[in-house]
Each structure stands twice: as C-alpha cells, then as structure tokens.
Design a protein around this nucleic acid. Structure first.
Lengths: 200, 200
DNA sequence: CCAATAAGAAACACTCGTGTATCTAAGGAG
DNA sequence: CTCCTTAGATACACGAGTGTTTCTTATTGG
C-alpha cells in the first residue's frame, strides 16, 4: 500500500481513476449535467483532459461511470429496531443522511441526461436497485407481518412503496432532507393506518 | 381583427410575441433547458435571433417568459361529479390530459434552470398556484365533507395533498401520464381509506 | 399615399468546450 | 540503475452558440 495522504505526487491506476470519478461526481453535484464539462472535471481533479479522454471517450460515458461509481459507494443498511414503525422511521432518517443529496441531485441535475439517453428516473432506479441487490425493505415488512403489526393482504405493491415514494417526492420537490416530523407523519399518519391489521 | 390564418406574412406585436413564446416553450419541451438556445428558438419560430434579443436580453429571461406564458394558458377546471371519489379521479385524469407533459417537462428538463436560479420545484409550484389563484381542490373536499364522505379532522395538510403528491411523484419518475388504474388505486386504496369517517 | 416602425436576413467578433496530438518527466517493474 | 508506461501540460483546429450591428423591406398608422 502506497501512502495515500500527504502530497499526492502523481496518482496512477485505481487511485487516479477513483479521484477522476469523484471529481466528475462532485462536478455533477455542483453544476449539474447541463454544465458538466470534461474541462471542469479535469481541473477539479487537478489533471488534464487527456487523462480523462484516455478512459472515457465521451462526456456521457464519463457521467454514466461517475454515477455508477457513486452508487456503488453508497452502503445500504436495513434497520431492525423491533417494530415496524421504528424500522421505517430509522430507514427514512438514514436515507436523509446518506441519500437525500443523492436523490436531489439525480432529480434536479440529470434532466438533460435523461433527455439524451431516453432513460427515466424509474429506469435509473431499477438499475441501481439491481446493482445493490442486497437486503431490501421487504425484510422489514416480513418481520412486521410475523409480529402481527402488518396485514400482508393490505400491502399492495403501491402501498409497500408508499413511504419511499412520498419520501422521494418530498426530496425532489424541496431538494432538502425531510424533517423528522415529516418522516414520522408519513409513517404514522399515512402508512401505518393503511397496513394495520383490522380487528376482525 | 386582422386575419390570423393563411400565409402568416410578417407577424407583429402580440401575435409575434405569442409565436415566439410558443416556439420557446416547444423548444424547452423537445430539447430541455440544457439545449435551449436562442438560435433554435429563432429557427423554430421562423425568424431571426435579433427579434428575440429585442424582447428578452438573455436566454434565461426568455425561458422564464416561456414558462410563465405556458402556465397562463393552462385552464384549470374543478370537476363536480357528486362524489369525492368521482371528483378526485376526474381531476387526476384531467391532469393527465392537461398537465402531465407539463409536469414531466418541468421535472426533467429544468434542472439546470433550478440550479441557476436557486429555485426548487416547490418554489415554482407556489408561484404557479399563486398565478392561477382560482378555485382549488379545497372545494372538492368541502363538498365531500358536507356530504359526509370525508372526515375533516382526518384531513391533515399532508393527506389533503397526498393524491396530488403521489400523482406528481409518478409523473416525475416515469415521465408518462398515469394509467387510469393507477389513478383509481391512489384514490381508492390510499386516499379514501385515510379520510373516510370512521363509524363511531 | 407617406413616413415611422419593426420584422427578418446576414455578417461579425467573441467565448467556451471538444477532441486530438505532442511533449516532459514521474515512478513503477525488471 | 534503467527502461517503459503513462500522468500531466500545452497547443491547435474546430464547431456551436452568443450578443451586436447593419441593412432591407413589409406593414401599419396617420
């Protein structure tokens, strides 16, 4: 392992490539895809365009690579607090920490990207979800059903996605992380009443 | 009234201005704000850039004007079918006709615009809602409450917006109008159960 | 009918980003 | 220590869009 701190000297191989993709991602975050230029990425990474062109032939492929790279670095955790309510609130608040900026960025800056590639946010989400392919929220629902907190018959696909759809909607519309009150509202006032087992 | 059809000859005044703003709006729709150029607008409008520069000094002001102009031409209707369910479904399906493209366009193409102006979709919606300032969905809720179809105590602000938030979320994520089934699902499976008066 | 106005065409200098090519020197492999 | 890959710098031709200016001519108002 070569020392990674101190004066960077001249970076190579994987270290350099990560730095390039990070710079590209930051550039996307700060200025959006519309103003996403190879030049700016090179400057931010402290290198020259040639280094970028050696790896990615076009702007779009660099952007794609940067997005994929950023996605890969997101770690996903599925909480297990012992209650459905606690799990969902924890999960959404964790999203606030780890993903709200990511989601906002995707929503706001990538319009031109979607337009050019013909993709939609839904498409991108699918490929991200496939990429992660780890444990999912379904675990939370399964545990809740086992505890009798949730009626599986009431959990239609749309309702299963409801808390996350509402979370995502808020992010896309306000570009800010949700307040804890908003998260609690989504869970307590909307989701839980819809899935709670009815007293027969 | 001068004849408005036939060979357009040389347009002037309001007629020309409308044509310019329409062309700008179409250009935004087709290619997004990222690829929104004065040149393209001039070409689409069948005129020269000078004509545009005489009216709007910058690209951004032209885009702003085009958006405002497009917003102004949207007519809003509030249905009155006699039932809450019917009103909401009618309203959302009407959105499908009149606004889904508009909403999709706003979500997707205007990222760079938001980034530059610092506005969010929420801000833009506020100014649009203010602009319209006509009858609102509140009317529908009031009538439903009067008929006893809706418990006003359960209608928190978030729940009042819920059908529209979900509608908007779907549009932003899929960039397509919602299927009628999806609209019915939002109303029947999610909204109505949350606001129906509980048998005391 | 005439004069004022403004549409529309065209040319210009300018900026910014692209993509390629060339050169140097850093730093790893042998 | 030496060679060889390649990071990083720099220069160039090119295209696309901007914003300005000048000129013409259609159209309108008086």
């Amino acid at each position: 392992m070569t020392p990674t701190d101190g004066k960077p000297g001249r970076r190579r191989g994987q270290e350099l490539e990560n730095a390039l993709l990070d710079a590209a991602w930051d550039e996307l975050n700060d200025h959006g895809y519309g103003a996403f230029t190879i030049d700016a990425v090179a400057q931010r990474a402290g290198t020259s365009r040639a280094v970028l062109y050696r790896r990615w032939p076009t702007r779009d492929e660099l952007a794609q690579a940067a997005i994929t790279h950023a996605v890969r670095t997101v770690v996903r955790t599925v909480p297990d607090t012992g209650s459905l309510r606690g799990d969902l609130i924890a999960m959404l608040l964790d999203f606030n920490e780890t993903r709200s900026q990511f989601a906002a960025m995707l929503s706001v800056h990538l319009g031109a990207f979607y337009a050019e590639t013909g993709q939609t946010i839904a498409d991108l989400r699918r490929s991200i979800v496939r990429e992660e392919s780890g444990p999912t929220v379904q675990e939370i629902y399964d545990r809740a059903a086992a505890r009798g907190e949730l009626d599986p018959d009431r959990l239609t696909p749309r309702i299963a996605n409801l808390p996350f759809d509402l979370y995502r909607h808020d992010i896309m519309v306000t570009l800010q992380p949700l307040s804890e009150a908003a998260v609690v509202e989504i869970v307590d006032d909307i989701f839980l009443p819809l899935v709670r087992p009815r007293p027969a």
